[in-house]
């Protein structure tokens, strides 16, 4: 991924980090962190794809999910151990990282879009945000649950990482073809986010 993309969208959030304090600042740090992670992922995925001689589609299906979710996980663990976040702040950080990640991807999408209609471009960027936020939420909430339940941390984290990689890879696979598969692909992250929103309510009802 060319560095111009990162420079094009990092100015405003950086200013916000300088001006804000407390939770607002942390949110923008997560956003910028997500952008940096996306930038690094582009470079790493490209390098790995060239190394194993994969074409663009194979790289999207087999390499990108592994690298992207790995970078997100590293970022979460940094946030978790460096900032010592409270439980209520975790979803905000997850959303910040996911949005930052998808923002840079959307910029890249815009540059490579060509003749796409505006509405198609918007829906692609929106759904890219959905999957990144959904995976980020899954990662951070599962990591928190593993810590709370005092499970074996390293294998637990790797197991959660495996879940998010598979969800991401399944999404990439489904949206790679038009028709019902595309709709199912877009429904996948939406279902994850709906489940996250409504689980506390269902638990309270029970």
């Amino acid at each position: 991924m060319p560095s111009d993309y990162l420079l094009a969208c990092i100015g405003g959030p950086l200013l916000a980090i300088l001006l804000l304090h407390g939770r607002g600042r942390r949110l923008f740090v997560a956003l910028v962190g997500g952008m940096f992670a996306a930038f690094l992922c582009g470079a790493i995925s490209g390098f790995l794809a060239r190394m194993v001689q994969y074409d663009a589609m194979a790289a999207v299906l087999y390499i990108s999910p592994l690298v992207e979710e790995g970078m997100k996980m590293v970022l979460f663990l940094l946030f978790l151990f460096v900032c010592r976040l409270r439980e209520a702040e975790l979803p905000e950080i997850a959303v910040g990282i996911g949005i930052g990640f998808s923002l840079l991807e959307s910029i890249a999408l815009l540059f490579t879009a060509g003749e796409w209609q505006l509405i198609v471009l918007f829906s692609k960027a929106f759904c890219s945000a959905l999957i990144h936020v959904a995976c980020a939420l899954m990662l951070i909430l599962s990591i928190q649950t593993i810590r709370r339940m005092a499970m074996e941390t390293v294998s637990g984290y790797l197991g959660v990482y495996a879940v998010t990689v598979t969800v991401h890879a399944l999404y990439n696979l489904l949206v790679s073809q038009a028709g019902i598969s595309l709709i199912l692909g877009y429904a996948l992250p939406t279902a994850v986010i709906i489940l996250w929103k409504f689980t506390p309510r269902i638990q309270r009802t029970n």
Binding site: Y62, L66, M151, S155, G156, G159, V160, A162, A169, L170
Partner: peptide, 23 residues
């Protein structure tokens, strides 16, 4: 079918890791 070392393998390996984490 997916190539070797695809998301399928990642998911199945993840299952064993999660079981290990719970013990």
């Amino acid at each position: 079918v997916p190539e070797i070392l695809s998301a399928c393998d990642v998911a199945y390996v993840g299952m064993w890791l999660i079981f290990h984490a719970a013990l």
